[in-house]
Design a protein around this nucleic acid. Structure first.
Lengths: 196, 196
DNA sequence: TCAAATGAGAACATAATGAGAACTTTGTCG
DNA sequence: CGACAAAGTTCTCATTATGTTCTCATTTGA
């Protein structure tokens, strides 16, 4: 457990770094807390390092915060269903977005139109795509048709040398293509929607 | 972590390049920082190159900035619509997930059931919620009903002291409550789905 | 009253900064 | 090309700023 002033020191460092994108000097921390001695701050910073809140490098502005929860994580509090209390989640306490961001050959497309509405992908949603040339059956892929049209559809292989592309919209029809007309460009990894 | 003067040097280079559409001379940087020695600037530029902020070419004005893309960004390549070529995006080249992750009082719930199906929120999807006690009309909120049931619904205020909760499922009915029966716990910020 | 927490400040070690000389490379011009 | 100027590179040397390690005094709370 941190003492009052240790907590103050940590708070100041966090604010400072968020604001300046840079670690503060010991004297800057001291000034921020109304303390005249950098030796005192050194003691607090040492304690914070000991307690695992930050790391020190033997340089000026050498402080680095140790993320208590990764920057790409949010606490996963529970499950929600209509009209029932939230069910607490015991095992997994963080939702890690690096599952989306992690891959090294991924990119985002913004979906226009309602062709994927039955898949829960709506107009203006973002989809995260991983580059790939092949896909397993029933994966949703970015497919290039006849070197011209690009589309996001579920893929199946009904028979050899044939590819079926299935739109997620009841109003549209699945269609079979000769395999050489279809080039798979990527696989759907995730979907993100931002609300106002 | 950059030192103060390294940061100053980087700032100056960025400003200069934005203004002049070309890289500054070492002596120009020196002058901009009030330094008389180009050797000093050379040292800072080398440090910045080492740290990955820029690249040097063996030419005069040979500096090139290296775009820093945050770890929580993915390239936004274009827009996709059924059966049309991808429309390239000119302006915004990164989708910033910090729009989702950024808030300091946010958490994630996993949705169970199909009560939000018409909103494109499906069973097992994750929703990002920001803590809040109030919401504007038509926002989707986490609402606590009678201190017991928690639900995710669109909110409206048909008249004073009355709250309407609207499920996003045609099979379910909107319902009006006395204002004191409903406590808003959070507002829907985003929605994320991970595919296998 | 005792122990922990807090603050001041001196003394020292190291990092950061600035100056400038000497040299190499690049650019320019006949 | 060849020469000259301009720019970039590589050094060494001082000086200053910052971080580290102390001791000592004061405050706070059980």
């Amino acid at each position: 457990m941190l003492t009052t002033r240790e907590q103050d020191t940590l708070d100041f460092i966090q604010k400072y770094m968020a604001q300046h994108k840079q670690a503060p000097l010991l004297t800057e921390i001291a000034q921020g807390l109304g303390i005249n001695s950098k030796g005192v701050i050194h003691r607090y910073v040492s304690a914070l390092e000991q307690a695992g809140y930050l790391q020190r490098n033997p340089k000026t502005r050498g402080l680095e915060l140790i993320d208590q929860l990764d920057a790409d994580e949010l606490p996963l509090l529970g499950r929600i269903a209509a009209g029932k209390p939230i069910e607490a989640i015991e095992d997994q306490h963080q939702l890690n977005f690096s599952r989306l961001l992690g891959g090294n050959n991924r990119y985002v497309l913004q979906v226009k139109g309602h062709s994927m509405i039955d898949e829960g992908i709506r107009n203006n949603d973002y989809v995260v795509i991983e580059h790939a040339q092949t896909a397993r059956s029933n994966q949703i892929v970015v497919a290039l048709i006849d070197e011209h049209d690009v589309t996001l559809k579920r893929v199946q292989y009904p028979q050899k040398n044939q590819v079926r592309l299935i739109p997620a919209n009841k109003a549209m029809q699945a269609k079979d293509y000769a395999a050489d007309r279809i080039k798979i460009q990527g696989i759907l990894i995730g979907q993100v929607r931002l609300y106002e």
